[in-house]
């Protein structure tokens, strides 16, 4: 059976990548079949933290319309079908703004004259990497490219049909985050116990619930008194998996290029406890 656990946060810098990488390693240590997906395609970092070796790489494209002007009679059906406003139909011409195209194919199906065919436009690459036996798949969006969601979808399509997939999502609550969390079996939201962190956690939780995905929270880098954060979780009816205390050793390890889960025993123990609770809520 396949299980996908998405890690998200709302706020950037909350610790998504560190938590996602650590959960993947902790699951591997339990002898499970694990695949880590880095869906933060604008700044994929899992490979940096894991010092992973690229195994293969493929160009990722999105299908965009190409209009055969000899067949087109300017009826405008393609433009009306496009919810991304990527087509302008004028009297003698059809303009395609392919950078706005999500590749949904609606224009292709809407055209009554078969005047549209779909051609590839490069978005970035999807890579397979190996991190000491842990399988990592990531996407890398080309610089200046705005279409993250179609690339995230392609990264997710590579996930294996068995085992547990841990997905490192992007910050925010817009298209990229939705494309990463939608359809996951469970979401783990990593939050800083700060006013910014809790505010953005609230947004991320709302978006996740809207997608129909159950979720729990990890409070990261807590500093002793987390009464306020826990009150926020209660108020928003959010389940707490655990707190990871602020620890200079973790920061130093990461700054050195190390893997905190491997090098900082107290941190690894915290992750294992969080994972135990996560598996209780997701597999019971």
């Amino acid at each position: 059976m396949k299980q996908t656990i998405a890690v998200a946060s709302g706020k950037g810098g909350a610790g998504k990548t560190t938590v996602a990488v650590s959960l993947a390693l902790a699951l591997t240590d339990r002898g499970e079949e694990v695949c880590l997906l880095d869906c933060d395609v604008e700044e994929p970092n899992c490979h940096v933290q894991l010092n992973a070796t690229p195994v293969s790489q493929e160009i990722a494209n999105v299908l965009v319309p190409l209009v055969d002007k000899k067949r087109c009679d300017g009826c405008g059906a393609c433009s009306r079908a496009c919810r991304f406003n990527a087509l302008a139909v004028l009297k003698d011409d059809v303009l395609v703004f392919s950078q706005l195209c999500h590749g949904c194919g609606a224009c292709y199906y809407a055209c009554p004259r078969g005047a549209i065919r779909e051609v590839d436009r490069e978005l970035g690459v999807v890579r397979e990497l190996d991190a000491d036996g842990l399988r990592l798949i990531d996407g890398k969006l080309n610089v200046g490219e705005a279409m993250a969601a179609p690339l995230i979808t392609q990264v997710r399509k590579r996930a294996p049909d068995t085992g547990t997939t841990v997905l490192d999502g992007p910050p925010g609550t817009s298209c990229s985050m939705v494309a990463s969390v939608e359809g996951a079996d469970y979401a783990v939201l990593v939050a800083e116990a700060t006013p910014f962190g809790l505010h953005d956690l609230g947004m991320a939780a709302e978006a996740t619930r809207h997608l129909g995905v159950s979720l729990s929270v990890i409070l990261n880098r807590t500093l002793g008194d987390d009464t306020e954060a826990k009150a926020f979780l209660d108020e928003h009816n959010l389940n707490l998996l655990g707190c990871i205390p602020d620890d200079r050793q973790v920061a130093e390890c990461a700054a050195r290029g190390g893997v905190p889960y491997r090098d900082v025993p107290s941190f690894a123990e915290g992750i294992r406890q969080v994972l135990d609770r996560l598996l209780e809520v997701t597999r019971s």
Binding site: S79, F84, N85, A86, L87, A88, V89, L90, K91, L95, F97, L100
Partner: peptide, 18 residues
Amino acid sequence: NLRAAQGAGIQAAQNVAN
């Protein structure tokens, strides 16, 4: 187009031109 997520200018221009 006032409510469009993207491409408002393109559609407004198309409608005005037409």
